[in-house]
Simulated assay, not measured.
Amino acid sequence: MTNTTAPARTLDLLPLALRLDAAVTGANGLAYLAAAPLLTGLLGVPPGALYGVGAFLVAFAAAVAVVAARRPVPAVASEAVVGANLLWAAGSVAVVATDRFDLTAAGTVWVLVQAAVVAGFAVLQVAGLRRR
Rank of each mutant, 00 (worst) to 15 (best):
L39N: 12
G26E: 03
L42D: 00
G54R: 02
Q114V: 06
F121Y: 07
A62I: 04
N85L: 09
G128L: 04
T98V: 07
G41D: 14
R9T: 10
V58L: 12
P47D: 11
A94E: 09
V109S: 10
A68Q: 05
A77I: 05
A65Q: 07
T108F: 01
G120A: 08
D102S: 13
M1C: 10
V53W: 12
A89I: 11
G128I: 01
A105R: 14
V117P: 06
A62D: 02
A34Y: 04
M1A: 15
A84C: 09
T98W: 06
A27P: 09
L50R: 08
A68E: 06
A59Y: 13
P7V: 01
L18M: 09
G107H: 01
G26W: 04
E79L: 14
V117S: 08
R71V: 09
T10L: 14
D21Y: 05
G26F: 10
A97G: 14
F101A: 00
G120M: 01
R132A: 15
L13R: 15
A106K: 08
T5Y: 02
A77L: 12
V45R: 00
V45P: 01
L103E: 02
A62H: 00
F60Y: 14
A31R: 03
A97Q: 12
A31H: 03
Y32G: 00
G128V: 01
A105D: 13
L50S: 06
V53N: 08
A49N: 08
A65R: 04
A106M: 07
T5S: 09
L18V: 12
V95A: 04
A34H: 06
V95W: 02
P15E: 11
V118D: 03
A27Q: 08
L42Q: 05
A84S: 10
